[in-house]
Amino acid sequence: MAAPPAGSTNAPYNYNYIFKYIIIGDMGVGKSCLLHQFTEKKFMSDCPHTIGVEFGTRIIEVSGQKIKLQIWDTAGQERFRAVTRSYYRGAAGALMVYDITRRSTYNHLSSWLTDAKNLTNPNTVIFLIGNKADLDSQRDVTYEEAKQFADDNGLMFLETSAKTGDKVEDAFLETARRIYQLIQDGSLDLNAAESGVQHKPSHVTRPLGTGEQPEATGKSCQC
């Protein structure tokens, strides 16, 4: 009988923090594809319209800390706007996406930004993403213009391609680094309910079902 090989991954928490992200932006800019690319490392062609909200997680590492990203992928369609507004609450990071080949999606950013500023807390990190960078020949919004917009509004900015995966990792990880930095600075209060960050003290890892250890290790902080 071999010991469970991946014992540590069976522990209630194999991460130190949870960061909540929300992905926002017009319909069809590639929000779900970005999430899919980030969590599955695959491009999803023929991605269906998101109904309400989708969800994904991935554990990343920042400065030696394991961080679980809980990512809420919202529907871009106007009819779901009311529902998706709920998810801004308690988001530590907001990825605001437009499509570099469609100017209208860029023009709508101010409206998304208004929502993001109004409905999140002041410390929420807002990251602007110009997606579909692989379609450079059809480009409708220049990098410089969007960069200027980002700088004017204090946003971080990258152009990505959910299709090739280019810079997708960077966008999610940069956001996490920025949030982690805010925690280190003390400007993000971990105890505030709406901070979008939960701290999970590391547990002594143990495999499942091996004995009579208190069940509560996982439950007590699951609030």
């Binding site: 997680t57 590492e61 495999p207």
Partner: peptide
């Protein structure tokens, strides 16, 4: 028999992680 369980579930666990696994994490 619960005593035999630590060995049996192991293969299942390795695959059925809730997250894509931390090995993909970049820093």
């Amino acid at each position: 028999s619960p005593r035999s369980s630590p060995a049996s579930p192991a293969p299942g666990h390795a695959v059925l992680q809730p997250t894509p696994s931390s090995s993909t994490a970049a820093t």
